[in-house]
């Protein structure tokens, strides 16, 4: 039987550097708060999804419906949230996600969950940072066998999950190349401004689609993080008959997989089946 996988969105941080609660920020044009986006992402992989909050903290905008787990008093920081999760369900594995990672994609989580399913007894399933190779503990899966390890460290006053993973020599998985920047977090208003600007995409249209759209080139501001999200978003806006089953995607004049991450200024084209010859 599959080990149950629960999801926990960490939103209990104080957002001191941002000066505003990060979980309630809207990043991009989608109108979704970071908390709402995170809960939605986790819900695609987890049988139950919870919001992690400090004692007394109100739910962030957009996530008022999510069940709440309060921080454990055995630790501080994110570890308090993680131990709170195991207090709720000690035998489950927990997919832990920080709420201030606006570039995390569904594909990135799908890959992580696939790694976990290969070794569901492993205490930790985690990525290595693309910047310094260190563990990425706030987009990771904590198996039930991690609980005694976490408690042992917490009892000694070690509350930093990254240090714990390093000390435990946790094997790490590389980030997929297309998601190498996916675990950049937002700490300051400058980070936020950068993330919002990152949503400008150049669309190119050809053939039948150029005719239906009524133009050949346009620059759009979108919330989509991947080519697939963009396809759905554009289809919702314009009803061009973009069928994900038959449309191919090109970015910067190369065919790409549909879960390919979008970068600022990318030139994206959706292509109907070829009819040359």
């Amino acid at each position: 039987m599959n080990v149950p996988l629960h999801g926990l969105l960490l939103a209990g941080g104080k957002s001191t550097r941002m000066g505003r609660e990060k979980a309630s920020l809207v990043v991009g044009d989608g109108g979704m708060t970071q908390a709402a986006r995170g809960i939605g992402l986790l819900g695609r992989f987890c049988d139950q999804t919870y919001l992690s909050l400090r004692a007394g903290q109100a739910a962030p905008a957009g996530a008022e419906q999510a069940p709440v787990i309060r921080d454990s008093d055995e630790a501080q920081g994110p570890l308090a949230g993680i131990l709170g999760a195991f207090r709720e369900a000690p035998l489950a594995a927990w997919l832990i996600l920080a709420c201030d990672l606006p570039f995390v994609s569904e594909a990135l989580l799908a890959n992580l969950v696939a790694r976990f399913r290969e070794k569901p007894d492993a205490p930790f399933t985690a990525y290595a940072s693309s910047r310094d190779g260190l563990p990425e503990p706030l987009c990771a899966i904590y198996g039930s066998s991690s609980l005694p390890i976490l408690q042992r460290h917490a009892a000694r006053g070690h509350f930093c999950p990254r240090h714990i993973m390093r000390e435990e020599n946790v094997p790490l998985f590389p980030l997929p190349p297309e998601d190498s920047g996916a675990l950049k977090n937002l700490n300051t208003p400058e980070d936020l401004a950068g993330a919002v600007a990152a949503r400008e995409i150049h669309l190119a249209w050809f053939g039948h689609l150029a005719e239906r759209r009524g133009l050949r080139e346009e620059i759009v501001r979108v919330k989509a993080g991947t080519a697939d999200d963009l396809l759905r978003e554009i289809e919702d806006r314009h009803r061009l008959g973009l069928d994900p089953k038959s449309v191919r995607v090109a970015i910067n004049d190369e065919f790409v997989a549909r879960d390919c991450r979008l970068h600022p200024g990318d030139r994206v084209a959706f292509l109907l089946p070829s009819t040359g010859g």
Binding site: P177, E178, K245, S246, V247, R248, V249, I251, E254, F255, V256, A257, R258, C260, R261, P273, S274
Partner: peptide, 12 residues
């Protein structure tokens, strides 16, 4: 049918 025949190559 060409879509299935042409595996998307990820070039980033």
């Amino acid at each position: 049918c060409g879509v299935a025949q042409a595996p998307d190559r990820l070039v980033r």
